[in-house]
């Protein structure tokens, strides 16, 4: 792969010394780890016999919070992402609108969802409302960027043809732009529903509601059987979402 033997050996040596250094600096509490083997066995056991019943009302509430957060945040996100995406397309928007919209997109993508969630929890208090806001921001960042990139790649001939008929700006958007980008937008939205649900199982860890909070509590109490039940529910819903998203994509292709 690398021509000069000197460079090749230097690279190998560099990688080897990095690995040695990296491994040397891992602090491992071996007694804790050896206890972990027992815990891992218990965890695995409880996956095979998950306990849905003893914390059922918590699990139920967490699941409902996650699902409602996912739905409302996706709807709100799409409603905001469409105008922002239009504004962030170089071939449609004047330069200053383009600048503002691309700025909004970059800002909403800069930090991980969970960090955004920390701030919303600090501002709006614990609970699913903070989670809703987090997922909305994340949906805007995801959808408006991809929508804008899609619009920038549409066939300009169709736009030209509609403009040549004397159509107004919004008619051009409706006929020439929307007809080209909507099928993929629908597919991406379905995909984002799936991602949002997965994220909703995580942002609960910092207090933004949802099933993640329930899972966090269960693990803190070492109730592995309840945690197993929650994980199975998450995996089940994620798979259902994935299946649904696939079906929707096929329908609108």
């Amino acid at each position: 792969m690398i021509e000069s033997p000197l460079v090749r050996w230097a690279a190998l040596l560099g990688i080897a010394s990095y690995l040695a250094l990296a491994f040397a600096t891992i602090d491992v509490n071996w007694t804790r780890v050896s206890e972990g083997v027992v815990r891992a066995a218990r965890l695995f056991e409880s996956f095979i016999s998950p306990n849905f019943t003893s914390r059922w009302s918590d699990i139920q509430q967490g699941t409902i919070e996650s699902l409602t957060m996912t739905v409302t945040a996706t709807v709100a996100g799409v409603l905001l992402a469409v105008p922002i995406g239009l504004g962030a397309a170089r071939n449609l928007a004047p330069w200053w609108v383009y600048g503002i919209c691309r700025g909004v997109i970059a800002a909403s993508r800069a930090l991980q969802d969970i960090i955004v969630a920390i701030f919303f929890v600090a501002m709006f208090g614990f609970g699913p409302f903070a989670g809703f806001l987090t997922l909305t921001v994340s949906t805007i960042g995801f959808l408006s960027k991809l929508l804008a990139d899609d619009i920038e790649e549409i066939d300009p001939g169709q736009v030209e043809a509609i403009r040549a008929t004397g159509a107004g700006f919004w008619q051009v958007i409706d006929f020439a732009v929307a007809s080209q980008v909507i099928p993929r937008l629908i597919g991406l939205t379905a995909y984002k529903v799936d991602i949002n649900f997965r994220e909703s199982s995580v942002i609960g860890i910092v207090g933004a509601g949802g099933i993640g909070a329930t899972l966090n509590t269960a693990l803190d109490r070492y109730e592995f059987d309840t945690a197993g039940a929650i994980l199975l529910i998450i995996i089940g819903i994620v798979m259902a979402c994935e299946y649904g998203a696939g079906a929707i994509r096929k329908r609108f292709a």
């Binding site: 043809a161 004397g166 159509a167 409706d174």
Partner: peptide
């Protein structure tokens, strides 16, 4: 430069966009 995903009729009627409200 037809709108590929629209029907033939919609494509023809697109010629009247200048005379039709949004």
């Amino acid at each position: 430069a037809l709108i590929e995903r629209l029907t033939v009729m919609e494509n023809v009627l697109a010629g009247r966009l200048g005379y039709t409200g949004f």
